[in-house]
Design a protein around this nucleic acid. Sequence first.
DNA 1: TATGAATGAGCTTTCATTCAT
DNA 2: AATGAATGAAAGCTCATTCAT
Lengths: 212, 212, 212, 212
Amino acid sequence: MPNSGRKERERTRHRQEILAAAENVFVRKGFFNTTMSEIALAAEFGMGTIYQYFSSKEELYTTLILEKAEAIMDVLTLATRKSSDPVDKIKDMITEQMKIFEESKGFIRLMAAEFDSPTSPEETRSQLRSGVQSTYQRFLEANEKIFLEGIRLGVFRNFPPRKMAVALQGIINGFVNEWVRSGFQESLSGNTDFIIKIFLDSVEIPPDQKKK
Amino acid sequence: MPNSGRKERERTRHRQEILAAAENVFVRKGFFNTTMSEIALAAEFGMGTIYQYFSSKEELYTTLILEKAEAIMDVLTLATRKSSDPVDKIKDMITEQMKIFEESKGFIRLMAAEFDSPTSPEETRSQLRSGVQSTYQRFLEANEKIFLEGIRLGVFRNFPPRKMAVALQGIINGFVNEWVRSGFQESLSGNTDFIIKIFLDSVEIPPDQKKK
Amino acid sequence: MPNSGRKERERTRHRQEILAAAENVFVRKGFFNTTMSEIALAAEFGMGTIYQYFSSKEELYTTLILEKAEAIMDVLTLATRKSSDPVDKIKDMITEQMKIFEESKGFIRLMAAEFDSPTSPEETRSQLRSGVQSTYQRFLEANEKIFLEGIRLGVFRNFPPRKMAVALQGIINGFVNEWVRSGFQESLSGNTDFIIKIFLDSVEIPPDQKKK
Amino acid sequence: MPNSGRKERERTRHRQEILAAAENVFVRKGFFNTTMSEIALAAEFGMGTIYQYFSSKEELYTTLILEKAEAIMDVLTLATRKSSDPVDKIKDMITEQMKIFEESKGFIRLMAAEFDSPTSPEETRSQLRSGVQSTYQRFLEANEKIFLEGIRLGVFRNFPPRKMAVALQGIINGFVNEWVRSGFQESLSGNTDFIIKIFLDSVEIPPDQKKK
DNA sequence: TATGAATGAGCTTTCATTCAT
DNA sequence: AATGAATGAAAGCTCATTCAT
């Protein structure tokens, strides 16, 4: 079946084009202020065509967030694999996160919205909760494990690992917020070193004490 | 004229009742999924009455967030006045913030939404931005000053004060998020000591080194 | 009952004040775009008070037009009593009409509206129809009689008197329209002589032929 | 592409159907008492469909009046081209006007309303004023020119041509009003001869004096 | 008698979704 | 498979009218 392959590829490409167009519009105008015909226009498809790929505005939105969140999380998880030292893993993760966020301005805002606000209809929310949340949770858990490992190896202080993960992610989000608030003026990744320092200073056990 | 006073008091009370009802509904369903008639129903007033106190759905929403944000910030600012020691000021501020947030669950979610995502109509957003943001900024600046003072007195390390403020607020928000995410299961203020510890450990100059 | 007399006079005065305020607003904004609270404000009464004098917005409007129309018609009818010569009666009537219209700009527009447009709710319309229309009809009929008398006396040509009345009133209204359209720039009564001339030239039997 | 032609024709037809239905309802109930759903019902379309052809109730109303006014004026202007004799031109114009008005009862009432009274919202009014007025003015000016030419040729008396145009149009409107008022009982065009006679008798210079 | 806060039916308008082509 | 005209439920908001003070 040589033909069906091409058709399928074309379908996949169309789907991606629609998602890309939708992301653009959603980021600019938010879920409720975006109309399906705007998306259709941006995607250069007829409105009916959108509905052949996504059964509703909500499904389109949910898919968009979920797929992108998954992709980001994959990159971050990968970043923590480069080194085997827990301290380096955390450093890599911080560095990579700042880079990724810096590259996906608009999307970050969309995702943040879904975490924090009761904006979308109930069904969407629960889908997103179980989707994005579980992605986010998986990620926090991954960091938790790094901290746990670090504690075992005596490189991290004996704080509750979950709380460490939450605090670190909080600091990162704090700078992301500040960056969003500033209208993306200053560099986001310029804060990487400060974050690493302020966080590790209280969490890492200094090498000299370690050796002891 | 004792009568005119009563009328005015009644007007103020009605206004508060409407705001309270609106907060309830907005928190549960978000700006767009809340209808004015739902608010009217919740406030036990006719729909027209709502419009005698607030000229539009947007104004009601904006007022709601702005007034509450202002009130919270006032309490927090006050909390930092109890002690004159910068370290104690920061401790008090963290403690007070955890308490206030714990008491205003729903509102926190609304405000978080407004910070992070383009959910409400454009005009509302810009009003909120300039309103809430300026409140928030004033607050960050207040903390900045505490850090600055602490650096001068040699009790805080010589980090950029703004960044310290951002990082600290980030940690706090991280735990607030986690708490929201958990459905308000665990105690929020139970994290107060951990936050104080993890933050001050890297930022405070230990008393023994200070004496030097 | 010396007191009841004062009360009654006061009631009548209030009624007139309300009517005057209402006329002002209606003329500026039209029936539908005028709100009762605007009228109350303009009359310097509470809204409830308006309803003690007029049972509805429509009744107020209807009363306004009817009373004013009646008053104008009275003046005009009076004007035709000064002379006993039919030709002079018509001249006086034209002259007086131009003067009155010139003095009551706004009202003219209101009244004109009621003649020509199906704008008000059905009930109002029928009241106005039977009210203003009958006033207007009475007036046309009065002129008809003058023409009839003039024909009998041999000073007017033997045209159908009703048609003469209609044509004359049409000419007058034509100039009133032109005047309204011009934004009340040129003098309205400046057209009096022309109207008299153009109309009488074809309708009056010249004195020399009359003598015959 | 024979198909795209059909679609366009269908669109035009639908537009006309909506306009026709709207005219019907507006004429019966006036601008404010007409609801969009009544129009939709009358047009046998969904309410949303109306809004695909006209962006608002006001635009629909404005378009309706302007297009029809334009069409009528076109016919009238054409009528004055049949003959080259100014007197005949005026006669033709009167005759044609009575015929057209007789055929467009309802519309006449709408237009009359717009000329004389502030019934529709302010924005609509000003659009209509500048639209209908300019059409009407163009028409008055056309007649003015006929009178001017007639004066030059010595067939009309030396009256100000503008005033003659105003007076003639006034007479015509007078009969139209009478006809409207009578509920369209008597024939309107039955008055044509009388109008021609009463107007020309005072304005036309009789052929015997002309020859001189 | 005078008031004006409270009311809610009813309006215009939007937009996700469908379906005949 | 792709289209986009048609749909109509549902929203925000207004304002004539009422009635407790």
